[in-house]
Design a protein around this nucleic acid. Sequence first.
DNA 1: AGTGCGACCCGAACGC
DNA 2: TGCGTTCGGGTCGCAC
Length: 273
Amino acid sequence: MPEIAEVETVRNTLKKQILHKKIKKVEIIYPKIIESNIDDFTKNLIGNEFIDIKRKGKWLIFELHDFYLLSHLRMEGKFFLKNKEEPIEKHEHLIITFTDETDLRYHDTRKFGRMNLIKKEDLEITPAIAKQGEEPFSKNLTKEYLKEKFDNKNIPIKTLLLDQTIISGLGNIYANEVLFASRINPLKLGKDLTLEECQKIVTATNSIIKEAIAMGGTTIKSYTSSLGVTGRFQQKLKVHKKESEPCLVCGQPILKIKIGGRSTYYCANCQKL
DNA sequence: AGTGCGACCCGAACGC
DNA sequence: TGCGTTCGGGTCGCAC
């Protein structure tokens, strides 16, 4: 499940591999991943080239001439660069062939990822992008910013951390880890958070995401070749998927509950309500 | 307006 | 063993 760290790794990897290569052919095998018009999608990509790859939250933003290709990997989306002669695999849903006979292939076992080709001038009015909140390591992510966003919210802080319009790019794994590091109970309502607790969230988010990016993410195996590079941040997780294991701080068993339908792991002793 | 929840997917894990 | 069932993950859109 790619989160912001994985998306950043994909961005950096693909930037070295596909920029300024001319697109010759576009093959859409599973059309539902494309949210914009299919015919326009193909027509506007052919003959075009990627000139940069940006990111906003978990969205990849491929810059072309006059267009942006927006791509959200959701849980299982991956990009592979392959020779065009290689057989098409079961979960490859989109193939972009360049004039140098290589393919950029989109692979997604769950078919959850989505793409969208938009005109450049529409970027700010595309809701998915425009509504993104502050990046985890942005200077604008301050305790005052969070306090204002959390105030009057009758929603558990765990759910608010997953709200991309507040913090852009935190997923379930990191939300669990940030709350453990901040010693805040995941069920605590947004309106009940103090300024001090908001600062703890800022600090924890900064350090956890920075470290995760440095380590190549949590779950990434490989987006570019069959030679796997396993995300090492997995080894740093303290509560996520650690149900019944002893808390690293106090030794009490880590609990697993559902909040907003999502698995939530925490230590009831270290993260008191 | 604020909040909650189902739908989208399918491989893996689980239960019998 | 083999079958059927449940789970999980992010986001959108709809219902209340």
